[in-house]
Design a protein around this nucleic acid. Structure first.
Lengths: 155, 155
DNA sequence: ACTATGTAGATGCAAATGCATATACTTGTA
DNA sequence: TACAAGTATATGCATTTGCATCTACATAGT
């Protein structure tokens, strides 16, 4: 009969989310200090990274957009700038004349690898003092579950 | 003697981070769909939220900045806009004439509470199908460890 | 086939952002 | 005290972002 909500599942979810979110902010702030990331914004790096995760090497702009926290027009123009820099290339989509597909150029791939190494090293330096290997695995397992659940409930 | 890195602790940390990061993006994208967040950007909401977490009610701009993924000049102007909207108030810092302290106005507090409820509800809807209560607690525990470690290594 | 409705991406334009720097104050040191 | 170096916030300005909207193509219903 209490109105107190401090131990409800709702609050528990909020607290877990808050901690996860603050962790993301805290780690991201540290990573951004790395001089390697002077050359490219984190958002641009994220585009390169997403492209490396693409089995065919090509991805539709709208699909890429779903993996980023950026509006469609902003992505459209960011990709335009990155194409001008020679980091990515576009082509009309295979079976949809409206669509555009994107892939890394050699130069884009080389840059991603270089920054990726710095990135991964930075992450290791930040996480390894905090968590054991078992805990890292546990953390990944939990967030993978959330990702799977989000994917399953895509409307 | 292998050059393969697929099972090193370095890679494990990177994979855990990637999953956490994708989770943050996925959840955030869903939360932003909520019509309640048409009124205020996520970054502005985050300022209001941080202010509610302040024991004295007041926080220095530079300290607030450390909790956000935004540059100092951007925060300076964002706060200026929020003050113009009547959501926050500024005053000169107590013992430092250079500094500025910030707090919520009544209106800002009311808005934070309203959006906070929608926010918390959205988080619950996204996380509770994915994780049990025990898993939520475990997730929070792991990310809290990372946060504590980051705080401890602040240079 | 024809029309209505939907979806992918681009573009005009105002607003927000970051970088470099300026300004005001503080602190350490001679 | 005086002065050099450091810190907190603000501001000029070019870039990036988002919203609204546009165009082009796709798809469903008749």
């Amino acid at each position: 009969m209490s109105l107190d909500t401090s131990s409800t599942p709702v609050r528990q979810a909020a607290e877990a989310w808050e901690s996860l979110f603050r962790t993301q902010v805290g780690v991201m702030r540290r990573l951004q200090r790395d001089p390697a990331f002077k050359e490219l914004s984190m958002r641009e790096y994220d585009v390169l990274f997403n492209l490396t995760r693409c089995p065919t090497g090509w991805i539709r702009l709208n699909e890429l957009n779903e993996h980023l926290l950026i509006s469609q027009p902003s992505l459209s123009r960011m990709v335009e700038r990155m194409e001008a820099k020679g980091l990515v290339q576009r082509r009309p989509a295979q079976h949809d004349q409206r669509g555009v597909e994107l892939s890394l150029t050699e130069e884009g791939l080389a840059l991603q690898r270089r920054l990726g190494r710095a990135h991964v090293r930075g992450i290791y330096d930040l996480l390894s003092p905090a968590l054991t290997e078992a805990e890292l695995a546990e953390l990944k397992s939990l967030t993978d579950k959330v990702l799977a659940s989000l994917a399953a409930s895509e409307s």
